[in-house]
Design a protein around this nucleic acid. Structure first.
Length: 216
DNA sequence: AGCACA
């Protein structure tokens, strides 16, 4: 039997990403870079190609934001992305434009030494829901899950503080989301009351780690 | 200005 052979829509390239409208402004720079032809080869817009790769494991819109190509520092330079402003003294990425270990779909990304699979996010409004936070992170490639933690305010009568931990499949994916959403204002018109601050989680733990530690 | 889950 001839099984349905995959249409050459990945080759034809006639199909462009058209769902980009639905994404908010915070993702624009990444969408722009996603449309950059230079890595359109490495990043097949796997909307139609089902049998392609299962890179979009976590989310509904895979491939929109890939952790690989946009150097988390390069795409954005302005304000204190603490990744960039850390100034580790290394020319991030400028040294190795292309690495031999680069595989299609997973380029190397200059990561800070403390990078982990899990992001620690604060600055969420007390009434934000898990679903809402998940919506923010889900478009990012490699997103796995989000866990909200509510802590009581230190001051009496203060609103409880909501923290959250976001798991990704690898530190590169986490770093991309971190860089992209750093300083993201959840309610812009409400003044800068809630601005997201993201870090790598201190103790990523078994849940985000790739198995039991102690590989050897 | 705060880091949980196993």
């Amino acid at each position: 039997m001839l099984n349905y052979l995959p249409r050459d829509d990945d080759r034809g390239g006639s199909r462009l990403i058209k769902d980009t409208k639905t994404i908010g402004s915070a993702y624009d720079r990444y969408l722009q870079s996603s449309q950059n032809p230079s890595f359109s080869s490495g990043e097949p817009s796997n909307f139609g190609s089902g049998a392609r790769l299962e890179r979009g494991v976590g989310g509904g819109m895979p491939g929109l934001l890939s952790a690989g190509e946009t150097s988390i520092l390069g795409g954005r330079g302005p304000v204190g992305t603490d990744l960039a402003s850390n100034g580790r003294g290394l020319g991030f990425g400028s040294q190795l434009p292309i690495d031999p270990m680069v595989r299609p779909g997973r380029e190397v990304l200059p990561l800070p030494p403390d990078a982990s699979n899990t992001l620690f996010v604060e600055g969420l409004s007390p009434d934000c829901t898990r679903r809402e936070v998940a919506h923010i992170f889900r478009p990012f490639l490699g997103f796995k899950e989000v866990r909200l933690v509510t802590k009581e305010s230190k001051h009496r009568g203060g609103d409880p503080l909501v923290l959250c931990f976001v798991d990704f499949q690898n530190p590169a994916c986490a770093a991309t989301a971190l860089s992209a959403l750093q300083g993201y204002n959840m309610d812009e018109h409400e003044s800068d009351s809630h601005i997201l601050r993201l870090q790598f989680a201190r103790y990523p733990g078994p849940r985000s780690g790739h198995g039991p530690r102690g590989k050897r």
